[in-house]
């Protein structure tokens, strides 16, 4: 229940910031501030929020980039993805233990353990076939796996973990 309340609050916050951005956009060009694309929330054992980090696309793109080509069950043909290994992201976020949940625009939520986050494993993609991803087409952030590289990435659970329209990460320690 608490989580839904939080999500609701979060959604409201994002909406406001969107509105702000939209409003700002109408203004004659000030110093362009990047809109937040990913909200990282840190929770303690009682699910109380202890910290909060907002990442822009630039923040993410500043991290070491990774790239691979694979097919997916949601697309047709070979797809090229570029992004950041989740392991690198966690290093960047200084997360080395705890439970990590990933949540999407449609309130879809899954867990990926730290152990699963290895280079060559889940990747936070921001470019699909060389272009940034639209929120109308699974963007702007999509966790993908190199499905073709290993049979283990062709399982139901991996498909479920391949969350698109990612907008929030919850780290419980």
């Amino acid at each position: 229940m608490l989580r839904f309340v939080l999500l609701w609050l979060m959604a409201v916050t994002v909406s406001f910031s969107g509105i702000t951005a939209a409003t700002v956009e109408t203004e004659p060009k000030p110093a362009p501030t990047q809109p937040p694309v990913l909200n990282v929330v840190f929770l303690d054992q009682n699910e109380a929020q202890t910290a909060d980090r907002v990442l822009t696309m630039a923040d993410i793109q500043a991290l070491p980039a990774a790239e691979f080509t694979t097919t997916t069950i949601w697309t047709e043909g070979e797809q090229q993805f570029r992004g950041v290994w989740l392991s690198d992201l966690m290093t960047y976020l200084e997360v080395s233990d705890g439970t990590i949940f990933f949540s999407a625009l449609n309130e879809y939520m899954i867990e990926i353990t730290l152990a699963e986050m290895v280079p060559g494993g889940p990747m936070l993609a921001y470019e699909w076939n060389g272009i940034p991803m639209s929120p109308r087409d699974k963007g702007p952030l999509w966790i993908v796996f190199p499905y073709d590289s290993d049979q283990k990435f062709q399982s139901e659970s991996v498909y479920a973990q391949s969350i698109w329209q990612l907008d929030r990460i919850e780290v419980s320690r």
Binding site: A11, S15, A104, L105, N106, P135, R136, D137, K138, W164, Q165
Partner: peptide, 8 residues
């Protein structure tokens, strides 16, 4: 948000 999700 809901439109984009639905569209996607």
């Amino acid at each position: 948000r809901r439109f984009n999700v639905f569209y996607s």
